[in-house]
């Protein structure tokens, strides 16, 4: 038998190894994550504050920011509605082909953004399936706003559903059944019971989807046509400025996106904190033998 302290010692690495692992891990994170993040802001401010301000107040940069925000705001409601619908069907009901459906929902994550862009080019482009019809009716999809919106919808589709499915599965359907047996209508049940239960998971999915919607590059790049001031989203604008050797301009725009990323990380951390708390609440509500199963 070993004494408790001896066991504890056996349970942790020797001091030198701990220091080594800590150094390797944190060093890796520093070089690959912290340094690039810092570099964005340093490069953006390399020519001083006025140059930074000028770069951001440029008309084309402004319109790129506006376009990016518009696309995200337009796409997110679709993500929310369909994400909740998908999670509701999958988490609360049993049906054939459910696991296939879950895999299909994940599909947009697996497909290369460039392929996604190409796919919609093939459908709506000049030589595409509907290209002739669209041209005849003077509707522009590709190299215009609708194309950007559609590929962004494709790319961001999985986020909300993926977040909600495991959450709603863990919550089970007892509370909803209780609401119905107490006389609630479907809408009352959803608004008063389901929605409050999933609000943090929903918000989490929306935050991730928003980050992706605002930052998407490859897919949007294929269908946007890069028309300055019209179909140039902020990430595409960064590319154009960078390729024109306008480093300050490129990094100034990039810094806006990096700030978005930082806000995303903070918001994510806050929401995760709330979700952990609710998971604990859920665990506390279940009898002990079942509580262990809750992730």
């Amino acid at each position: 038998m070993m004494s408790a302290p001896a066991l504890r010692r056996a349970n942790t690495e020797p001091r030198w190894l701990r220091s080594l692992l800590l150094g390797l891990g944190l060093g890796f994170l520093f070089f690959f994550l912290a340094l690039p993040l810092l570099a964005v802001f340093v490069e953006a401010l390399a020519a001083g504050w006025p140059a930074y301000r000028d770069a951001l107040s440029d008309g084309e940069t402004r319109s790129a920011i506006l376009l990016t925000v518009f696309v995200a705001l337009f796409v997110l409601p679709f993500n929310v509605v369909v994400g909740v619908a998908a999670a509701w069907a999958i988490a609360k009901f049993d049906f054939r082909g459910k696991s296939l459906l879950i895999t299909l929902i994940d599909l947009p994550f697996a497909v290369s953004p460039v392929v996604v862009g190409l796919v919609f080019l093939l459908i709506f482009g000049a030589q595409g399936l509907f290209g002739g019809w669209l041209a005849a009716h003077d509707v522009k999809v590709v190299f215009a706003l609708p194309g950007i919106v559609i590929v962004t919808m494709f790319i961001t589709f999985p986020f909300v559903a993926r977040e909600l499915i495991p959450l709603m599965q863990a919550q089970g359907k007892d509370e909803e059944e209780a609401a119905i047996s107490l006389g609630a209508t479907g809408w009352q049940m959803f608004r008063r019971v389901t929605l409050p239960n999933i609000r943090w998971g929903l918000l989490y999915g929306v935050i991730l989807a928003n980050a992706r919607a605002m930052g998407e590059f490859g897919a949007v790049s294929v269908v946007s046509g890069h028309i300055r001031g019209e179909t140039n989203t902020l990430p595409l604008h960064v590319e154009i400025l960078y390729n024109e050797y306008n480093a300050v301009g490129a990094f100034a725009s990039a810094s806006v996106l990096a700030l978005l990323a930082l806000v995303t990380l903070v918001a994510k951390a806050v929401v995760e904190w709330h979700m952990r708390r609710e998971t604990r609440m859920l665990a506390a509500e279940l009898p002990p033998e079942k509580a262990g199963v809750v992730p």
Binding site: L29, L33, P36, L37, A39, V40, E43, L208, A211, M214, G215, E216, F217, G218, L234, P235, L236, V238, E239, Y242, A250, F251, A254, L257, A258, L260, A261, L262, T264, L265, K268
Partner: peptide, 15 residues
């Protein structure tokens, strides 16, 4: 650690 999820790829690329 989630920075690569949140940072647009173009920004990562030029940086």
């Amino acid at each position: 650690v989630d920075l690569p999820f949140a940072l647009p790829t173009a920004v990562a690329g030029i940086t």
